[in-house]
């Protein structure tokens, strides 16, 4: 019996889709059978980030409307044979799917797959309702910006109302800016949101290159700090205890090290 994890944030552009793609790769690397569902109907991106856009024939809406079998719509990743994508429809909108249909779909996929990651659209409307409907737990993505943290807080409140367990992933952290006092630090964010931290991903130019190319950074984790960070998050999802990366390694690291020790379990 698999587990459904929704990747959500409230705010747009904080890295939900990138996170979904990389965690999918990370879990697949650990020989888990993984399905990524793009719930952002009408503004799909996950297929592009995965480099699978040109393979789409059927989509999420086709599945729930019964035009095809679920298996027919699943696109096998070109790199990992136990990683699949269920793309969103692009020519429809969020109302094409109902929470009840999502719940049924997730339940069906859980029978055959270990992890189902749902890439949630920005916002708190119908698309969000659909995305969380079938979820067992949630990962909240935020960036170290006041606006993103504010929205994350709102989302956590909504998820608590649904009794969904949520963990926090801080994305696009820039240690140099934190050091100068120009960016919120990890513990500032954790203090406000007060949920378990599952990972911190450093800001990385390679992410932009990789999303443009359709090759998630986690696939070549040795080449980038962000890729390694995603792999670590995947391991934590699997229940392993992995130390947090020292993102301040090139800085005045003694003072930073002290901070990290607080999270380093």
């Amino acid at each position: 019996m698999g587990e459904v994890i929704v990747i959500t944030s409230g705010k747009g552009g904080v890295g939900k889709t990138t996170t979904t793609a990389n965690l999918g790769v990370g879990l697949a690397l650990h020989n888990k059978k993984v399905v990524l569902i793009d719930a952002d109907i009408g503004l799909r991106n996950l297929d592009v980030v995965m480099g699978l856009e040109n393979r789409i024939v059927y989509d999420l809406v086709a599945v729930v409307e019964g035009h095809c079998r679920t298996k027919q719509a699943l696109i096998r990743d070109k790199r990992y044979e136990n990683l699949y994508l269920l793309p969103a429809a692009q020519t429809r909108d969020k109302n094409a799917v109902s929470p009840e249909q999502m719940r049924k779909l997730c339940a069906e996929l859980k029978e055959d797959y270990d992890y189902i990651l749902v890439d949630c659209p920005a916002g708190i409307e119908q698309g969000f309702r659909n995305a969380i409907a079938g979820a067992d737990q949630a990962i909240i993505v935020t960036t170290p910006e006041v606006s993103a943290v504010r929205d994350a807080d709102r989302i956590i409140g909504l998820l608590e109302a649904e009794e969904l367990k949520a963990r926090l992933l801080i994305n696009r952290l820039r240690p140099d800016m934190v050091k100068r006092g120009d960016m919120m630090d990890i513990d500032d964010i954790v203090e406000i949101l007060a949920i378990e931290l599952i990972g911190v991903i450093p800001d990385d130019e390679k992410i932009i290159v990789s999303t443009n190319r359709g090759e998630p950074v986690a696939a070549n984790a040795n080449n980038s700090l962000s890729g390694q960070a995603y792999i670590n998050v995947a391991k934590r999802i699997l229940g392993e205890s992995v130390a947090f990366l020292d993102l301040y390694q090139n800085q005045s690291f003694f003072s930073r090290l002290k901070k990290l020790i607080g999270f380093g379990s």
């Binding site: 480099g51 856009e53 040109n54 393979r55 789409i56 024939v57 070109k78």
Partner: peptide
Amino acid sequence: PTQLRIADVISRAPD
């Protein structure tokens, strides 16, 4: 194209 379809035949762009 991302994909070309003619009748029941489908092809996609090379990667």
